[in-house]
Amino acid sequence: MLAALVAVRLLPRNTPVLVVSGRDLIIKNLKSAPTWEDRGWVETRNKDVLIALMSELRARTAKTSFCESKGGQYALGCAQAQALASEAAQRNNADAINVTARPETVLRGAKLSKLTQSTAYKLIKSLREKVSRKATDEVVKLVQSTVKQLYLYMPTTTMVWKSTRHKDITRQIRSFLWRCLHSSLRIGKYWKHIPECKDRELCPTCGVTEDLDHIMVQCNRPGQAEVWKLAEKLWLKKGHTWPAPTVGATLGCRLATFKVDGRKSQADARLYTILMTESAHLIW
């Protein structure tokens, strides 16, 4: 869709254009676009690019056609486009592409005849300013970097939050994980500015700030090390290596991937999730 957007912008508006794609994704999205537009683009993926593309197409005066081709007369062009795409995917920095739509060709809001209570509520929520929480953002980034290091892919922020509400995790532990991600546990620096509770900031055993990382994996007090050893002993029976327990690995445990005979194993991922969350909550 980005390639189509750049193409129609570069060419004169009165020049007929044929956009050829090796997949029918653009065609499907353009066919669905009027319906999404009527609903205010609620929960539409890549909506910024799609809105900009729709805007440019409406501003054109010549015919613009789209077709899917996996060979034939367009085989050479598709192969060259694929080679360019593969080359671009290896870059460290992405190109900055303007996806701002033309205001005169974009409809704002949603059609009243297509509006439901659910759609209206989602639109209202989307208009609210997102509050940035520094502590929460740091924890989420920690989970993302840990998952990338251990399982070689970068989960989105939404994936991180959804993983903590999975059905394999009990309600009580979901609440605990939610508080961990928000750094809202009453430990460590939480007590620093409360005069009569300043002594609670430090671990009574180790004498250092009692943050979540210290409680889960560093504290010398009997308990946490024994719990992780038992969890590791059970996990090793599945034939997988044991990822060192950290805060990032614990909070992102549902995002872990394990393969058996070259295929992803949902059963092993479920066991790992249960082991990590139950062990972390028991230590807490």
Rank of each mutant, 00 (worst) to 15 (best):
A244V: 13
W242Y: 09
S69H: 04
A7V: 05
G109A: 05
L112M: 13
I194C: 08
R23P: 00
E226V: 08
F176P: 01
K28I: 03
W228F: 12
V139H: 04
C253S: 12
T100K: 15
E210W: 05
R165Y: 05
D168R: 11
Q218K: 15
L2T: 12
V106I: 13
F66S: 01
E37W: 01
M1D: 02
T170Y: 04
L2E: 03
R133L: 11
S279Y: 01
V143L: 08
W36E: 02
D137A: 14
K31F: 06
V139R: 09
T119W: 06
V208A: 11
G72E: 06
L76A: 14
R165W: 05
T158K: 15
R179T: 02
A94Q: 11
R23V: 07
R133S: 03
M154S: 14
N46D: 12
L236H: 02
A85R: 11
G22D: 07
T241V: 10
P155N: 02
L271T: 01
L30T: 03
K28G: 06
K233E: 09
S184R: 15
S163E: 01
N46H: 14
K70P: 00
I124H: 08
H240Y: 14
G40A: 08
V208E: 07
L25H: 12
C219H: 02
P12K: 12
